[in-house]
Amino acid sequence: MTTTPDGRSSLRGALGGALGGALRGSPTLVVGLALVTLHVLLALTAPWTTGHDPVVTDSGDVLSGPTAAHWLGTDQYGRDILSRVLHGGRYALAVTGLATTVAVAAGTVIGCFTAYADNWLDEVVMRVMDALLSIPTVLALLVVVTVLDPDLWVVVLAITVVYTPAVTRVVRGAARAVITQDYVTAARARGERAPSIVFREILPNVLDVVLVELAMRASWVVLLVATLSFLGFGANPPTPDWGLMVEENRTALTVVPLGTIAPVVALATLVVGLNLSADGLSKRLGVDRAQQGAAA
């Protein structure tokens, strides 16, 4: 287990300790986080690095191959593909970051509280979560986005609702193992209130599980966002978005293959980066130790 040398072992200390310890000596995690960081940096700096506006059309220069002016060529409206790919990460990352954070945070808090309550409330909440889990993800999202607008916030909210139950389930399982520990019993015997026990005693000890959940869910959400856009329910044209680009350019696949391949490569590297991060984190933090049945 990783430890922090300093005594301020609050949530922050636990988080820092977990991450710091995890980074040391795990090539998987380093590569994963490097890929994700690269994507974030490229997306953030896209307006200054690309030199082309991603939505400006140029009817005189459509479907060109790679040229000196357009390194990856242009699409059927004459828009610069490189610029669109770099900008396309912004929408995907914004939605993924927001939706994953909110879903994991909500799932964590609900999971810890219901695990601690361990009474009828736990039963009711978990049956509701089970019901939500039984709804097919893409279908649910399509319905929500069709009924409401495919606005960024609507998509974020819909993804949050869809993913919170799964996170709740995982965190609740981890929290139930923590609750049997004597330090939680000691806190109960001190007459501590539920929020104090959850935030001081339980949460710091499930943070490793939460971190892994965060990285893993993020990779699914990235794919989900791209899927929605591809189906025409995510970003609206002419917003640069990977899913949307694939959809727009697939008819011209034979003419300008890069129009389809470039966003796919971008999407794939981000997903692989997130997956490697999740994998590295779970190995380094020993999150799968419970399954291995190893006594600590």
Binding site: S9, G17, Q181, D182, E201, P204
Partner: peptide, 21 residues
């Protein structure tokens, strides 16, 4: 009424310092 536990491994929160316990 105060409790002391059998298992020293699980009686202290691993993420909190001795001082804060």
């Amino acid at each position: 009424v105060q409790l002391m536990f059998q298992n020293a491994d699980t009686s202290l929160n691993p993420r909190r310092s001795i001082g804060s316990a």
